[in-house]
């Protein structure tokens, strides 16, 4: 956690694959992920459609480029989304206090290959998410796997940005 907290900014390419009961085929998307300590997280999806998500403090701004639509959510109004995004942001920030506020935490593995398993504490969240597993080595996050209560799952793989 201290290692993660020491990272002031990080940038990576991501590929996300979502498997949902509603859909016949998995949903795949890719783009860039940018983190700036302590509380800013940006996710720019390029494929299949351009979309950006910017999380800054307690507001989340979603922009759909193709529809020229932009929407800002206050996280406190959407607790489920809040807990969701906090799992990623707080891990990147090494903010154990916030994580333990929302999740039961199990840390496994060694420094060069660790795994953080988060299980939500609140009932409202439990009905949505079963576990969030974050894998990485040293101070880099490599994978984020989300298993939802109803069986849907998503796996995000993050690789170093090639300059």
């Amino acid at each position: 956690m201290q290692n993660l907290a020491a990272v002031k900014s990080a940038r990576g390419r991501f590929v996300e694959r979502k498997t949902m009961a509603m859909l016949n085929t998995p949903l795949e998307s890719s783009g860039t992920l940018i983190y700036s300590a302590p509380s800013r997280l940006e996710k720019y999806t390029l494929l299949p459609t351009a979309e950006s998500l910017v999380l800054e403090q307690d507001r989340l701004t979603i922009e759909y480029k193709n529809r020229k639509q932009r929407r800002t959510l206050l996280l406190r109004d959407y607790p489920v989304i809040w807990i969701f995004v906090e799992s990623i942001r707080s891990t990147l920030a090494g903010d154990l206090a916030t994580l333990t506020r929302f999740y039961r935490i199990i840390l496994e593995g060694a420094d060069d290959k660790w795994r953080l398993v988060l299980t939500p504490l609140e009932a409202s969240m439990q009905s949505v998410v079963k576990t969030i597993t974050i894998g990485g080595s040293h101070n880099r996050v490599r994978t984020i796997e989300i298993i939802e209560a109803e069986g849907d799952r998503s796996l995000m793989t993050i690789s170093e940005e090639t300059p």
């Binding site: 996300e16 979502k18 949902m20 509603m22 859909l23 949903l27 998307s29 999806t45 459609t49 979309e51 998500l53 989340l60 979603i62 759909y64 529809r67 959510l73 959407y78 489920v80 989304i81 969701f84 995004v85 949505v128 998410v129 939802e148 849907d152």
Partner: peptide, 15 residues
């Protein structure tokens, strides 16, 4: 549009 939303964090609510 729904498909796109499903991929975003709001997807959990939309589902």
């Amino acid at each position: 549009q729904d498909l796109q939303l499903l991929g975003s964090p709001a997807g959990a609510l939309l589902r």
